[in-house]
Design a protein around this nucleic acid. Structure first.
Lengths: 246, 246
DNA sequence: TGCCAAAGAATTGTCAGACTTTTAAATGTC
DNA sequence: GACATTTAAAAGTCTGACAATTCTTTGGCA
C-alpha cells in the first residue's frame, strides 16, 4: 500500500485509491480495522487532515465506517444491499437528471430490465409479493390521491414485482432503475382516465403473477411501457404547445 | 441549505448531505460554482477542514470537481456515463465479493438482464457491433490464451452485445453487472473443450444478431447461462473434492 | 496601438498542533 | 462477583499558517 510522493497534488485521492485497492483486492477484508489516522498519516508521510480527507472519500462510498472512542477507528464495511441500492439510486437519478437522457430512453431501459425478471417473478413469487401488489393496486384506485402518491405506489408495485424474482442482485439493480425514474414520472400529470388504464394493466400483471405466467407478465409490461411513453409524449406535447402558442 | 448545529457529530456528513440535496433538487445545476471553502465554512459556521471533508465526500461520488487557482473552486460536475459506469462496477464488485452472493445468483441476474436487451440489440445492432463480436470470437479461439484474457474477451463480446441495444442507460447498468462478474468468472479454469463450447454459443449469438433474430439471441443466452452455471458447479465441486479428500 | 511578460490576487492543497468528545477497557471498591 | 470510577485511545473539530496554482490585471516595450 504505497503512494507516489512526487505526484503534484491530490494526495488524499491517492491515499483513498491505495486503501480502496487494498479492500477490493482482498488485502483488507470485511471487519478489518484500519490503522488509526495518526498511524496512517505516518505511514503515508502526510498530515492527519489529508488522511481524514481520504477516509471521508471512502466513507462516502460506504467502503468504510468509522467509530469513535478507544479501540475505535475505521473499519472495512460490509457493503449491504441497502447501501448499494441507495448509491444506485443517487447515481441513476443524477445521470437521468443531468444528462438530457430522454424520457423514452430511460423508460425503455427500465421496462427492458423489468421484463428481464418477469419469468423469475412468475416462478418464485410468494403470496406476500402478490398481496403487496394487490394492496398497491387498491391504493392506486383511491380517489383524491396526489400524483406524487400515485407514483410512489406505482414504484412500490413494481418493486414488489422485482422482489418476487427472488434474486437480491437483480432487486438492487432494478429497484435502483425504477426509483431513479420516479422524478421523471412525477412530471406527468395523471388524469383519472390514465390512472384507470394503468391500474387495469397492473391488475393484469398481478393476475399473471398469480397464474405464474411469466410470458403474460412480460407482454403486459410491454403494453405498460407503450402506454407510459404515449402518455409522456402527450404531456410533453401539451406543455410545448402551452409554452409556445405560435 | 442549512445544517443542524446541535447535532452530535459528523458535521462534514451533514454539510455534504446539504450540498448533495441542493444538487439533486436542482438548486445547483451542472457547471455552477460553489462558494469558496472559506465562504462555505462561514456559511455553515464550521472550520475549513470540515468543509473540505464534506467536499471530498461529494468528489468521491463525482458530484463535484475542484479546480485550483484564482476563480477556481468546486464546480457541480456533469455525471458522465463513464463515471456512473465506474461507480456501478465498484459497487457491484464489492457487493458480489463481500456478501457471499452465490455464483448462481450473480449469474442468474447477469443473464436475465442481458436477455433484456436481446430484442433491442437485434433490432438496432450496427455493422460495427457485429464486427466487434466476430473479432472477439476470433480472439477467443486463439490457442495459448490465458484464462484471464479469455474472460476479458468474453466481457468485451457481451459488452458489444449490450451496446448494440443502443440505449446508453441500459449499457451503463448492464456493462456494470457483466464486468462485476468478471472476478468470479476468473476463478473458473476454462478447459479447451469448454472454451470451444462457449465460442460455439457466441458464434450462434453473433449469427442471430446478424439475422436480427432477438428471440434466438435470448434463447442462446439462456443456453449460455445454463452452461456457465454447470461449468462453475463442476469447478467448485472439483475444488471441494481436492480440499477435503475424505 | 498591440502584444508579451511580470506582478497580484483568489483559491485550493497541505501541514502542524491543539483541544473536545466519545467509547471501551482497566482498575478499584463494595 | 457486580458495579462504579478512572484512564487512555481514537475520531471530530478548530486555528493559523504556508505552498502551489491559475486567472486577471497591469506595466513595459516595440
Amino acid at each position: 500500500m504505497k503512494i507516489d510522493p512526487d505526484s503534484p497534488a491530490d494526495l488524499s485521492a491517492q491515499i483513498a485509491s491505495a486503501i480502496r485497492d487494498a479492500i477490493v483486492s482482498g488485502a483488507l477484508i470485511v471487519g478489518d480495522r484500519l490503522p488509526s489516522e495518526a498511524e496512517l498519516a505516518e505511514h503515508f508521510a502526510v498530515s492527519r487532515p489529508t488522511v481524514r480527507e481520504a477516509l471521508k472519500r471512502l466513507a462516502a462510498q460506504s467502503l468504510i465506517r468509522t467509530q469513535r472512542g478507544a479501540f475505535g477507528g475505521a473499519f472495512v464495511n460490509r457493503l449491504s444491499y441497502g447501501d448499494a441500492h441507495a448509491q444506485q439510486i443517487t447515481t441513476s437519478t443524477l445521470l437521468l437528471g443531468m444528462n438530457d437522457v430522454s424520457f423514452d430512453t430511460a423508460c425503455e431501459a427500465r421496462f427492458a430490465m423489468e421484463r428481464a425478471c418477469a419469468g423469475l417473478a412468475a416462478a418464485r413469487r410468494s403470496a406476500d409479493h402478490l398481496a403487496t401488489m394487490r394492496a398497491e393496486i387498491t391504493r392506486q384506485a383511491q380517489p383524491g390521491l396526489t400524483d406524487e402518491a400515485f407514483c410512489a405506489s406505482d414504484v412500490a408495485f413494481h418493486r414488489a414485482l422485482v422482489d418476487a424474482a427472488g434474486n437480491p442482485v437483480l432487486s438492487y439493480q432494478l429497484a435502483g432503475a425504477v426509483e431513479a425514474m420516479q422524478p421523471l414520472m412525477n412530471m406527468i400529470t395523471f388524469s383519472a382516465r390514465s390512472r384507470e388504464a394503468i391500474i387495469a394493466l397492473h391488475t393484469r400483471i398481478a393476475d399473471a403473477a398469480q397464474a405464474r405466467d411469466g410470458a403474460q407478465i412480460g407482454s403486459v409490461l410491454e403494453q405498460l411501457e407503450h402506454y407510459t411513453r404515449q402518455l409522456a409524449q402527450s404531456v410533453f406535447d401539451a406543455r410545448a404547445a402551452r409554452a409556445k402558442p405560435a
